[in-house]
């Protein structure tokens, strides 16, 4: 099993994401943003949290135009898996791989704390080790996590069971409490909370671990 984790100038969750993938049994390659192709035979690409390109213009906007993101779009287009966390979620919406956008938090403050999430669907390789309705504790750390999508997009997301996680106590104004969404083929997940920061007891929680193990299970049997 091979995972690639992108590294942009300003990424700060890249090594955490790599540790969580490795702990679940993945061989992890770090992939520099200037590379124009991904390493061969990757099962999944992780787009980490942080402040790619200093959040200039809009969070994730410059990263979305980087050479490696074209390769990630091709990978996703071929049915490849992608996990975007926090800034990675912002990058995925800016590339158009996921619908909607992440706006400034409604309270205008950077919010950094562990929050309760509800698993909205277990029907994905990311969430199949949870049950729909489960409550998990996962940290958030963002200034621009206020998910927005128009009514048609929201209706489609719900109709296709593509909302992956919702906040129990909305910390940022996200429409319909949405914390994470899946692509149409359910192989791209973007979420603001950080499962990799809740994947080892030493970090204060392990509720995120099930995601990395679920992915490992998918690729081990593939």
């Amino acid at each position: 099993m091979r995972a690639g984790v992108l590294v942009f100038p300003g990424s700060n969750g890249d090594r955490d994401l790599a540790v969580a993938f490795r702990a679940a049994g993945f061989d992890v390659k770090m992939v520099w943003h200037k590379d124009s192709s991904l390493p061969d035979n990757l099962d999944i690409v992780g787009i980490p949290g942080g402040f790619s390109y200093g959040d200039y213009l809009r969070c994730g906007a410059i990263a979305a135009q980087s050479p490696i993101c074209r390769a990630v779009a091709d990978h996703a287009g071929r049915g490849g898996y992608v996990l975007g966390v926090c800034n990675g979620f912002q990058v995925l919406t800016e590339t158009g791989l996921l619908p909607g956008a992440l706006l400034r938090n409604s309270g205008l403050k950077y919010v950094c704390r562990t929050v309760g999430l509800q698993v909205a669907t277990a029907a994905s390789a990311f969430t199949e080790n949870y049950s729909a309705g489960d409550t998990v504790e996962i940290p958030i750390a963002h200034h621009d996590g206020n998910y927005f999508a128009d009514d048609d997009t929201l209706a489609r997301l719900h109709g296709e069971d593509r909302v992956a996680f919702t906040y129990l106590d909305n910390p940022n104004g996200s429409v319909q409490d949405i914390a994470g969404i899946l692509s149409e083929n359910r192989r791209v997940l973007g979420m603001m909370p950080h499962p990799e920061r809740a994947a080892d007891p030493v970090l204060g929680g392990t509720d995120g671990k099930a995601m990395f193990h679920a992915l490992a299970g998918t690729f081990a049997t593939a």
């Binding site: 213009l57 809009r58 906007a61 135009q65 919406t93 800016e94 619908p99 909607g100 956008a101 706006l103 927005f148 999508a149 128009d150």
Partner: peptide
């Protein structure tokens, strides 16, 4: 269209 604005929002 491609970079300067995010036309979703």
């Amino acid at each position: 269209e491609q970079l300067l604005a995010n036309t979703v929002i």
